[in-house]
């Protein structure tokens, strides 16, 4: 006779099963729900596509508008874009696409649980699936922008560096950071529904503070701010890989990656432990 596993639901602390078991279960949750993650992603993907034609063009329109804004600000002397090794459209689009993984990704992940509605508190399934399938949208957007970037390169008669195929590896840290923070913010959003608003406002603010759409200036407050800013390195380095194949801040990038991995593991852990408390309060 098939040996069936006995599930026990109690008020006991999750630590009673030991940390190794907790991590094993965390991993098992993800692996077992891979079909679910895919299906939710496909469902959201199809629904987005069916809703409007404009839905897809926004992926191109938004970066074009943002770049246009910065170009105008540069021309009028408000912001100094500085010396860049490639035409501004390429520089801006690449920086923007990488930035959007973090900023838009965090925003979308935050509502991952609440947007699922009654699903979250009627059926028992690992809710990590909701957060992970929202990440799918972010990745798709990025890939589409990469295509647009390639087209822009060709239009200028240029090519990205020979190392650009390493991009997936270098984008992984910012993805992990986004996921880790997303796990935490999606939890927070269930309790405090203005979390997403806070995040959106903060992201718009940071776009100006970080040399994403312009180059890092020689001196001033911005230099100090970005010297210790891990997000800057996690975005600047992949950009450099594509443009020139060099890394200006290898040590800082390495440290930032470590931080991203730590944030990811902590965020994932807290999400796993807090899940059932979530479900009763959605």
């Amino acid at each position: 006779m098939k040996q069936q596993e006995i599930k026990i639901y109690s008020s006991e602390s999750p630590y009673k099963q030991g940390l190794t078991n907790i991590f094993k279960n965390m991993l098992r949750n993800i692996i077992n729900s891979r079909e679910l993650i895919w299906q939710i992603f496909i469902r959201n993907f199809k629904a987005r596509y069916k809703q409007s034609l404009l839905g897809w063009t926004w992926i191109f329109l938004i970066p074009i508008m943002t770049m246009g804004t910065f170009l105008l600000l540069n021309i009028s002397g408000v912001i100094r874009i500085g010396e860049i090794p490639v035409p501004y459209p390429i520089f801006g689009l690449l920086g923007f696409s990488l930035w959007q993984i973090f900023s838009h990704g965090l925003s979308v992940l935050t509502t991952g649980i609440t947007s699922a509605g009654i699903l979250s508190n009627q059926i028992n399934f690992p809710r990590e699936a909701l957060v992970l399938s929202s990440l799918g949208q972010v990745i798709v957007d990025f890939l589409i922008r990469l295509v647009l970037l390639f087209i822009t390169y060709l239009l200028y008669g240029l090519f990205p560096s020979t190392w650009f195929w390493l991009l997936p590896l270098f984008v992984l840290p910012i993805l992990l950071l986004t996921l880790g923070l997303g796990f935490l913010s999606s939890l927070l959003h269930v309790f405090l529904r203005d979390t997403q608003n806070f995040i959106n406002v903060a992201m718009d603010f940071f776009l100006f503070l970080m040399p994403i759409m312009y180059t890092i200036p020689e001196k001033g407050f911005l230099v100090k701010f970005n010297k210790y800013n891990p997000i800057f390195f996690l975005i600047d380095t992949p950009r450099e890989i594509v443009i020139s194949g060099t890394i200006t801040y290898p040590f800082e990038f390495f440290l930032s990656t470590i931080l991203a991995v730590i944030v990811f593991i902590i965020g994932w852990f807290i999400f796993y432990v807090a899940q059932s408390d979530l479900a009763e309060r959605i």
Binding site: K7, S10, S11, N124, E280
Partner: peptide, 15 residues
């Protein structure tokens, strides 16, 4: 169904 946990006591499910 395991959607949330009891505050006291235990539920055991086989299957």
């Amino acid at each position: 169904n395991g959607i949330f946990m009891p505050n006291k006591g235990k539920i055991s499910i086989k299957g």
